[in-house]
Nucleic acid binder design. Structure first.
Lengths: 217, 217, 217, 217
DNA sequence: GATGAATGAGGCTTCATTCAT
DNA sequence: CATGAATGAAGCCTCATTCAT
């Protein structure tokens, strides 16, 4: 078999070996999000990845380990990307919020990994370890990011003196909710929600809700 | 077990017989919410209800039927109660919104049935029939209720001319999110969210977000 | 179905429930002895017992638990029977040894449970817990029985002052070996060893080997 | 790995190539004896031999073929050595017996290949072919050797006119039993049997059991 | 009606074997 | 020759469902 051709239809053994875990978690993500943890059959994951059932066990010790890897690897890169975005921002806090929430949706919510929150919320009680990990590594970091935006806005008198603890959850809530919805009820129904209108109105309401009083004039 | 003793620890036979299905769905709700559909074992449900496994089949044809009954019976009564509340309301739309959302939390969110949304969102793709039913009977009716409140506010010039379709979801989103959170991550973690502060800030933000412009002065 | 008939072809549910564990271990013994632990499929055990695979799990937590039960329950009753036999013996030590070894062969070696030693010796290293149990409960008690016979013979000057520790193993060794052989090589070959001749010669040699010097005249 | 380095830690390529099968069966022997046939994973054998799993298949067609090779190659050389020892013996039959049994223990029983009898007895029913081979090539030759010693003793009036068929098994039984014991229960327990005392007493008993009557005076 | 013993289909997991590199 | 990634058949175990009592 000529290498030049083989390289396209079947990557070299060594390359595949390195790429495999990511291929497998990607396939697993699809199936886990579609079926939920328990209803996911490893056979389906394998089929989705185009490998045999046994191959999964070359890279992951168990179904649980695969699930954890999906959650871990799925969300962290996007989160990091988001954090760097926030760190260097110069403009108004309103624009920053738009950037952060918009980015969260573009980078996570509207992507395949946007299915992870549904998974995590659904399975948290069965996998306390995952719940704990997700809380520490994703929720805490995510809320810290939002918190810094809100506190920035308050400090710069752009935002009201809101209860920051609560507001953080109110700000990300609709984003998470949209992700969850998108991967559950939306899938079964003809009439879906219009994401554009949803987020436009989200910003309209949320910013009015946050603006310092004088701003409203 | 002698009847004389049983009579003391349990309601009379006749009463039990009629109450059985409700006792069973109540027990099932607990377990379904804790474990999710697939990870719930009927043996656990039976144990929780204090009956034998076989007894479940006297009242429900299958695990799926039991699940559907849990979803159906769990949420509808509370919803009806909410609808009557809205219909006869006289005060301001702001107060109505407070009443509706507050009632939704008091009657549903903070109760055991508040676990159902998590269940439904988690299992919607596995049970299209449930998703469809829930969409029709709960989401549609619930959003219609919210919609009527928003449209009432707009008509009375209390609220801005928001995009109603989107706003409906933005209004119930944080409530649903809070229910879901309460039955997943909150269960595994020490530090929970303060519901009082959460809803206080919810109303502060949401109402500022909805108020017609002049109101802000 | 008339009870009188049913009682013969299908014992009442309650009776079976109590008898089941013994039926299952009996079936399991057969298959374990024939195949060894690892090569035994629970499906075969179930088939041998005339039940379904799942039924095994109503009575035993796992294959390992079943195996342990087979070893435990198989050998102890016979051992106890042997001990009582020894305790009340009155005659010569030679006759006692004949009685003990003969009984060991009649009650254990030539029965189905005679397959257990092969099992235990084969699997000891995979099941240290079983090895330990078997050592404590069977080997120790069995050797103690033999030891008491030998010490009785020495005290009564019927036997030489042998090294008791070693002799104990030399006395039971040929019996165990016969059991093991019977359940392994004997099964695959046409020409078997004649048990009668084997034990006649065993006593001839062993007793000459044990007798005090003067006896030989 | 550069050859120059490999040359220092391992024999030259040519040597290894020839020695490979023996290295592999040696490694396999260790693992088979420890785990038993079924519980032995070829991966463990490969690791023990310091090669990859695939390499085993360059030298042996299958796990079963490897097992057979282990049994075949393990015991035959030692047996041949024993036979030549017997053939040329000049002294008394008692001394010959001591030599043969002592040699059997020194050359086989106390060596790694002493684990083979346990293996064979454990797996005989699963591998009739091995049972048959072992019976023919090892048991028959071994018993023939013992038989010739006993018949020599009888012919020379050193031994009683025992039942030779049975006596042969009684003579090798304690040796085999010791081998089996050494590789099973002994491995799991602190207090082992003293081989020296065991064989001293073995000879004491066995020879008294075999001696012609007059000898006992 | 109520029970719980029994069933057996189905999923996770292991591992002997193959084969491209 | 040697490797080790990949395969897939096979076995343990679970649990929804049935049914005799």
């Amino acid at each position: 078999m000529p290498n030049s051709l083989a390289a396209k239809v079947a990557p070299s053994r060594r390359r595949r070996k390195e790429a495999r875990p990511a291929e497998l978690t990607a396939a697993a993500l699809d199936v886990f999000v579609e079926k939920g943890y328990a209803a996911t059959r490893l056979e389906d994951v394998a089929a989705q990845a185009g490998v045999s059932k046994g191959t999964l066990y070359l890279y992951f010790d168990s179904k649980e380990a695969l699930f954890k890897a999906v959650v871990r690897e799925g969300i962290l890169p996007a989160l990091t990307e988001g954090e760097t975005l926030v760190a260097g921002f110069k403009g108004s806090s309103e624009d920053l919020l738009r950037e952060v929430i918009g980015g969260m949706w573009r980078l996570i919510g509207s992507q395949r990994i946007g299915g992870i929150p549904k998974l995590v919320f659904a399975e948290a009680r069965n996998f306390p370890e995952i719940a704990s990990f997700y809380h520490q590594e994703v929720i805490m970091r995510g809320t810290a990011m939002i918190r810094s935006v809100i506190e920035r806005g308050i400090k710069r008198k752009e935002f009201r003196k809101v209860n920051v603890d609560a507001t953080v959850y109110l700000v990300i809530g609709p984003v998470l909710m949209r992700m969850i919805w998108r991967h559950s009820l939306d899938c079964c129904l003809a009439a879906n929600v219009d994401d554009k209108a949803y987020f436009d109105e989200y910003f309209a309401i949320m910013l009015r809700g946050l603006w310092a009083e004088r701003k409203a004039s």
